[in-house]
Design a protein around this nucleic acid. Structure first.
Length: 645
RNA sequence: GCCAGCGUAGCUCAGCAGGUAGAGCGGCUGAUUUGUAAUCAGCGGGUCAGGGGUUCGAAUCCCUUCGCUGGCUCCA
């Protein structure tokens, strides 16, 4: 008679024989979905695991991030296995699961090309079909080292020597073995739905001084539907890529002769930007900010004082000499705002000061990092500096947090992820400012987040050297996160520029300074907005809000009159007076994604109306012009995200 | 910056065992006067990203510069 054990699974407590496989135990349970892995005593295991003692079992379902990580990690092993089969002599680096994907780094004389992906994937399918068991093997360190050395895997040897204790945990499948902590799936046959995505370079251990390896990315899912869903998402993202849509909709362009990373805003893009800027200004004035302007260049002395020439020079454009003085293009606006602060003596009665600027800055970005509008060399920050007394800081942080969230919501971004970046506790020396300052700053950030009940992730070691910060990432229509907002304490500038205010006590005090950008950069925000809306801008932002299409040229006069009237009432309208059939004009207007389309022919001229068509929705029938205008203006005023008639 | 890939008309792309460039759409001109996603016809348009080399001859092969893409590193 075998020993009985007691297992708690999903609220049920089950008694079973010692050694029973978990899958067998689960067979008798009525589960909401099919689990793929389980966590027993804090370890992720396969469902085939024999249960040998009392314990809690947490089931992991295919939508669980942790289960997917295990799947993808096994996927990376399968890929490495296939690569070593196909390309003997290749060395393997590391191969983890990452968000939505996995990768493995390889060292091989001939670099992989995208053409190699198909054959590697085919070999992976073969290895999966053989359903090789994936076994955990623990070897004494010396044995592991000599094993991998024999195989010529010197990168692995290096890893084992660095990371393994007395023993090295490895995973073996067929003739492939890898130094790895796991966990993994039970066998290669569990990997059914995977796809290799791309090849790229990556530095060994992420350090650009090290040799460059070749990284192959792939992804894997538990079901075919999920894999296809993900691949479709990539396709959809490609379709709404702002680098494709932007030029297509004539919003912006880049020119080779201009230089890379320097966007040109075309009339329609500029119109959207102007609307954004106008809204931004109004919100800022209403929100207690003052707006500043400052020049694009400044003397070297300024940048020495600010410290930029010390710690930021690599990202600055080379100086230009004027009258024997070096001037630099500004990479940040802060020094200018500080000079305005210092232009007179400040009293505690003047504080808080909230100074904002749409400041255009230039930063030298390495050519490889440029990316459409999302990463450029010349861009306009919606910058602001809040200068206040220590006693005001908590209120000010809360205020700027509320203001940020509310401004983002105006554009339809209501699903945000918030990161709190704090010091690296292991490395206190690399930060400026006193311990006390850091603690108080961090406390005020935390307090603001908790007052509003916003969930946030604490990122240790992610703070910049001059202070802790809150970053807000907005989630777009495809669920992707984009960093826009940053709210940063700055303990550095106030010291360097010796900023002071006269307190109630008549003595000089050091103000707190908070640096913030809400949309981040107008360029990046615009790029995200294009992708988020797929170019279908909400009515209040649409560069052309209404297109008036006369059916025949005898209706041109009526159409032009209608456009004039709409414009007088503040609607951005255009008439299409080309000699095309109305079907063609409609197609053109739809392709330009004009939200409101007004068609006018004999009937409309006779009755003084227009026939309304809404982009993406089709024919809405005749409308009275006055009623149309009122409705359109209301949609603009409310910044409505959809056009519902 | 690094690794890999790419750069042919405004756009999408064909041409590439080396023999001085083509299509569709867009544009222009003309005809058509049109009712909810493409009317017809004609005509223009490219030092094949720039420069250099190999060759009798280069869009095609090689080198180099610039730009773009996917990553690495960095960041708004």
């Amino acid at each position: 008679m075998s020993e009985r054990i007691s297992i708690r699974v999903e609220k049920s407590v089950l008694a079973t024989d010692k050694g029973t496989r978990l899958s067998k135990l689960l067979a008798g349970l009525d589960l909401p979905a099919k689990p793929v892995l389980a966590e027993v005593d804090g370890r992720i295991v396969d469902l085939d695991v024999p249960l040998d003692k009392d314990g809690d079992v947490v089931l992991l379902y295919p939508d669980s991030e942790r289960a997917l990580d295990v799947l993808r990690h096994s996927g990376s092993h399968l890929m490495a296995h296939a690569v070593l089969d196909l390309f003997p002599g290749t060395q393997v680096g590391i191969g983890p699961a990452v968000e939505n994907a996995f990768y493995y780094d390889f060292l091989r004389e001939t670099p992989f090309t995208t053409g190699d992906l198909a054959s590697i994937e085919a070999r992976m399918k073969e290895l999966a079909a053989r359903d090789l068991p994936i076994e955990r093997v623990v070897l004494p360190k010396a044995e592991a080292v000599s094993l991998f050395r024999e195989k010529g895997q010197t990168l692995k040897v290096e890893l084992i020597e660095e990371k393994a204790g007395a023993e090295a945990t490895c995973y073996r499948q067929g003739d492939f073995i890898d130094f790895c902590l796991g966990p993994h799936l039970a066998s290669t046959g569990r990997l059914r739905h995977f796809k290799l995505l791309s090849v790229s370079g990556a530095y060994w251990k992420g350090d650009e001084r090290n040799q460059q390896l070749q990284r192959i990315y792939g992804t894997a899912f538990f079901s075919k539907d999920q894999l296809e869903g993900y691949l479709n998402l990539i396709e959809e993202a490609k379709k709404r890529d702002h680098r494709k849509l932007g030029p297509e909709l004539d919003l912006y362009s880049f020119a080779d002769d201009l230089g890379s990373g320097l966007p040109l805003w075309h009339p329609k893009g500029a119109r959207i930007r102007a609307v954004i800027e106008q809204h931004w200004r109004e919100r800022h004035w209403a929100g207690g900010y003052d707006i500043l302007y400052s020049p694009h260049i400044g003397r070297a002395k300024l940048w020495q004082t600010s410290g930029h020439l010390g710690f930021y020079k690599d990202s600055m454009y080379s100086p230009m000499e004027i009258d024997g003085q070096d001037y630099y293009l500004k990479p940040m606006n802060c020094p200018f705002h500080i000079l305005i602060y210092k232009s007179r003596l400040r009293s505690y009665r003047d504080l808080p000061l909230r100074w904002a600027e749409l400041g255009t800055v230039y930063r030298y970005e390495r050519s490889g990092v440029l990316h459409g509008l999302l990463r450029v060399r010349g861009f306009t920050q919606d910058d602001a500096h809040i200068i206040c007394t220590p006693g005001q800081i908590e209120d000010e942080i809360l205020r700027v947090l509320d203001f940020s969230v509310s401004l983002l919501a105006d554009f339809g971004f209501i699903d945000n992820k918030i990161d709190l970046s704090v010091r690296d506790p292991k490395n206190p020396d690399k930060y400026c400012g006193s311990d006390d300052l850091w603690c108080r700053a961090e406390a005020s950030l935390v307090k603001a987040l908790e007052t509003r009940g916003y969930p946030y992730e604490r990122m240790e070691g992610e703070a910049v050297f001059y202070g802790p910060k809150i970053d807000i990432k907005i989630k777009d229509a495809l669920g992707r996160l984009w960093q826009c907002t940053t709210i940063q304490f700055d303990f550095n500038m106030s010291e360097r520029f010796d900023m002071t205010y006269i307190g109630e006590d008549g003595r000089e005090h050091r103000p707190y300074m908070v640096h913030r950008a809400l949309l981040g950069s107008l360029e990046r925000f615009f790029g995200v907005l294009i992708e988020h809306t797929n170019g279908n801008f909400p009515l209040w932002l649409a560069p052309v809000q209404a297109a008036v299409l006369p059916i025949a040229d005898r209706h041109d006069g009526y159409a032009s009159g209608l456009v004039a009237r709409l414009r007088e009432d503040g609607l951005r309208a255009e008439a299409d007076l080309s000699r095309e059939k109305v079907g063609h004009k409609i197609r053109e207007a739809e392709l330009r994604k004009v939200p409101l389309i007004l068609i006018v022919g004999d009937k409309e001229v006779r009755e003084g109306t227009a026939s309304l068509r809404i982009h993406g929705q089709g024919d809405k029938g005749p409308v009275d012009i006055g009623a149309f205008l009122a409705k359109a203006q209301a949609l603009v005023r409310n910044r409505s995200l959809t056009v519902l008639w």
